[in-house]
């Protein structure tokens, strides 16, 4: 299957800067979509393919950080590169904690900007690949994987799901095999790309 061209979503209220960023990104062969506000971006049909966000921090209405908060509630969100008018340490720390790929200060050099975008796209690729692999898991395998990631022992998982410890081991091995994870940390990282299933008995711990 031919790889779809990655899309960079540029969200900045300054029309001129937005146009300039779009041009710069197009020279790298990316597809670019520009939005004048966070609201305009949110109004767009959900995007599932390779891509990332280039997001201005200070905007009227919903600002960059707020948009990031809204988007990262959904595990499938696109990686975000922030572009800020003035470097504000608490804001940038906050953004990075929330999983931003990079936090650039305007005016940003093209090399830095494109490197950040490349990193974000790479992260997206990993994300998509992981998701693809996760999609091959059966419901039970997924359930077991998430409990493993939570740190539960096989015996505890068996008790929780009402199955034998042996069955748990089988599901666990198959999940590792299907996702290609060779270690527990790798599985943890992969599982982060998936929202855990919430069976009714998980409501009360």
């Amino acid at each position: 299957m031919p790889e779809a061209r990655p899309v960079v979503f540029v969200i900045d209220d300054d029309a001129s800067l937005r146009r300039a960023l779009e041009r710069l990104l197009r020279t790298e062969g990316y597809a670019v979509e520009g939005f004048a506000s966070a609201q305009a971006y949110l109004a767009r049909a959900p995007y599932d393919g390779p891509g990332c966000l280039l997001l201005d921090l200070a905007m009227p209405g919903i600002d960059g950080l707020e948009l990031q908060q809204r988007l990262t509630r959904d595990a499938a969100s696109l990686p975000i590169v922030f572009l800020s008018g003035h470097a504000n340490v608490p804001e940038s720390v906050n953004a990075m904690k929330m999983g931003a790929v990079d936090f650039l200060t305007k005016p940003a050099d093209d090399a830095d900007l494109l490197a950040a975008v490349r990193a974000a796209l790479l992260q997206r690729d990993t994300q998509l690949a992981a998701r693809e692999r996760l999609a091959t898991l059966s419901a039970r395998e997924r359930e077991v994987m998430h409990l493993v990631v939570e740190g539960l022992r096989n015996k505890e998982i068996a008790a929780r799901l009402g199955i034998t410890e042996k069955t748990v081991k089988v599901h666990r091995a198959r999940a590792m095999e299907k996702t290609g994870a060779t270690s527990l940390p790798e599985l943890v990282r992969l599982a982060a790309e998936d929202s855990p299933p919430s069976p009714p008995d998980r409501a009360q711990p």
Partner: peptide, 28 residues
């Protein structure tokens, strides 16, 4: 000052991005 710096920074950032885009386009 912060507000004014922002006012100045926007066009400067746009100019830089535009100039670098042009440079890349001319290389093709």
């Amino acid at each position: 000052a912060a507000s004014i710096a922002h006012e100045l920074n926007q066009p400067l950032a746009a100019i830089l991005a535009n100039a670098q885009a042009a440079k890349r386009m001319l290389a093709a």
